[in-house]
Design a protein around this nucleic acid. Structure first.
Length: 547
RNA sequence: AGCGAGGUAGGGUAGCCUGGAGUGCCCGCCGGGCUCAUAACCCGGAGAUCGGAGGUCCAAAUCCUCCUCUCGCUACCA
């Protein structure tokens, strides 16, 4: 059996991710990984906190903390939030570890030996007060075009023009707010993506056949068409992994470099022995989830690093990039729209609700609109009325007619419709259509609801005691409805593990669900009164989100 | 400006790669059924010149060209 590594883009250890970040990578990766687990695959799910980079260093400084302490503090918070959303990583690690450092050094050495590292020289803004180089957006001043006072070194938010730091009039350092800035020459190391271009191009050509979204394929190809350039992998700063060369003793590896390598480093952190068998096995499938803003890192730079190092690490098989969740057609972000910090959301609704609602609108093929109204619609009408209520009516009906419940299986009459839906659910997952898989599940619930309405079992239950034929027919109907409920209990597991557990305990199942269980014979426990699976959103919950 | 993605009933989407009657889904609206279930469920209906214009084709939402609008990215944000 081939091994599968599922990864989600590493969240930056700076703040708690918002719903948009979550739905873009960690959530679908977790759902997909859970499905693989159900299928009995040898699949590991790796993620972790990205801990280096200037923003973290500065933030730590402001809080009078060491960058490492701040990054670790955030790391634990982020990890805990994901866990409370029932994400079951094989391992959730971080990038600032000895293990990751070892892998980074090993890869860097190999890149150097293979001739893919080159020295670059550039001029960079330097704050004489803070005694450090400044990244472009830490320079603030007057825009040379529109004269706005709040232009940054990379861009002016007022007029939208792209800028370079030297263009800014009266530049100030964002850290100390002083304007004692000079421009100094600095040297860096870069990876020669230009030399690696033919192989990267070949990789994209070949692997993009594995269900890459349109955006991932086209964006990558368009970069290739423009021609790749060497890209810096070091920075002149303190926080990060020191470059192991005397000449670069005052530089560290650039955060994006050790972040992508972090996928390997974190696996090594997980298991010092097994990590290699996953990353270097030739049949391993590497499935990577991310937002579309991360595409080029995963389709160009990351494969470039792996190909250049030539250490036998597997290349990404499937790049599963997501579009954006939007609010009034604009990209989700904390500064706009509703309060959608993951921590806060969990205070209002349990994780199953968010997992379901977010996957129901997972922006798989295009940006997807999300709003509190839509959330309420999904929770109230889909989760509660269609799915939850079906389970309730089936169980209550069966309890009221215990004597008529015989074999739990789909009646011939409904087999075709049923099989089609279950097959579609599996097919959706195989082709990475995760939202569709959830929609298929809802379709199965609708089938159950339709069967009840069509057959009206409550009408004939009285006749059943005297009429054997009626009794048999009712047994078939109850068997069908219970089978559907049981299957929903299994199929909903990747999306809503808690609801799954609640359904399956009525069928005397306490193990982790598997696809094999779909065709297994089960019994039903009709002694315990069923509890409502989901509840509708209340006005106060809605008000809580709007705040 | 360049590049990428998108524009499909009142709203939200799928279909587009691989052309075959506007085919599907959710909400909303109108009508009916049902009363097992959480005032839930089921059935039927109205509602779309598939952003616009041209082209290819027996046939275009789907392929090609141009235009237009929206969002995103543009390598020192990670």
């Amino acid at each position: 059996m081939s091994k599968i590594i599922v990864t989600a883009a590493l969240p930056y250890s700076y703040s708690i991710p918002h719903l948009g970040n979550f739905v873009g990578s960690v959530l679908p990766a977790d759902v997909y990984h859970k499905y693989l687990v159900m299928g009995g695959e040898d699949a590991i799910f790796i993620c972790g906190s990205d801990q280096h980079g200037t923003p973290i260093e500065i933030r730590a400084m402001e809080r009078h903390q060491k960058p490492e302490d701040f990054a670790n503090e955030m790391h634990l918070k982020i990890k805990s939030v994901f866990e409370r959303y029932d994400c079951t990583f094989t391992y959730y690690g971080k990038t600032h570890t000895d293990q990751n450092k070892e892998v980074v050094y090993e890869i860097f050495d190999a890149l150097q030996k293979n001739g893919y590292i080159v020295e670059t020289h550039s001029t960079q803004a330097y704050c004489n007060i803070d005694k450090r180089f400044l990244i472009d957006r830490f320079i603030e001043g007057t825009c040379p075009f529109c004269k706005s006072d709040h232009a940054r070194g990379d861009q002016c938010d007022n007029c939208g023009r792209l800028l370079t730091p030297s263009e800014i009039i009266n530049p100030k350092c964002k850290i100390c707010s002083k304007s004692d800035i000079s421009f100094k020459g600095t040297k860096n190391l870069a990876i020669k993506l230009d030399s690696l271009e033919p192989k990267i191009s070949e990789f994209i050509e070949l692997n993009s056949r594995n269900n890459w979204p349109k955006a991932a394929k086209n964006k990558s190809q368009s970069y290739i068409k423009e021609g790749l350039k060497p890209r810096d992998i070091t920075r002149n700063m303190d926080w990060g992994f020191k470059v192991p060369l005397e000449k670069f003793h005052d530089s560290v590896f650039y955060v994006w470099f050790d972040a992508v390598i972090g996928y390997i480093g974190i696996t090594k952190e997980w298991d010092g022995r097994k990590w290699k068998s996953y990353w270097t096995h030739k049949d391993t499938k590497l499935v990577q989830f991310m937002g579309k803003d991360n595409i080029e890192f995963h389709t160009l730079m990351w494969p470039g690093i792996l190909i250049g190092a030539n250490l036998g690490f597997v290349l990404p098989t499937t790049i599963k990039s997501a579009e954006y969740l939007t609010s009034n057609s604009e990209k989700f972000s904390k500064s706009r729209g509703i309060g959608l910090d993951l921590e806060k959301c969990l205070g209002i609704l349990p994780s199953d609700y968010w997992r379901f609602a977010l996957m129901y609108v997972y922006p798989e093929t295009s940006d997807s609109e999300f709003s509190i109204d839509l959330l309420r619609e999904i929770v109230n009408n889909i989760m509660n009325d269609k799915v939850g209520n079906l389970i309730q009516r089936v169980l209550k009906l069966s309890i009221a007619n215990k004597g008529l419940v015989k074999k739990i299986r789909i009646q011939n009459e409904y087999r075709e419709a049923h099989d089609k839906i279950v097959a579609k659910y599996k097919d959706d997952f195989s082709n990475f259509r995760l939202r569709e898989a959830l929609h298929s599940l809802v379709e199965l619930a609708t089938l159950g609801n339709t069967i009840i309405s069509e057959r009206k079992p409550w009408e004939s239950t009285k006749k059943a005691s005297s009429d054997g034929e009626v009794a048999n027919e009712l047994s078939d109907i109850f068997g069908t409805l219970l089978a559907i409920s049981y299957e929903i209990g299994i199929m909903i597991w990747p999306f809503c593990p808690n609801a799954s557990e609640n359904i399956l305990k009525h069928f005397n199942v306490s193990d982790t669900p598997s696809l094999k269980m779909l065709s297994m014979e089960v019994s039903v426990n009709l002694e315990d009164e069923p509890k409502q699976l989901f509840t509708k959103m209340t006005d106060s919950q809605i008000a809580g989100l709007q705040k």
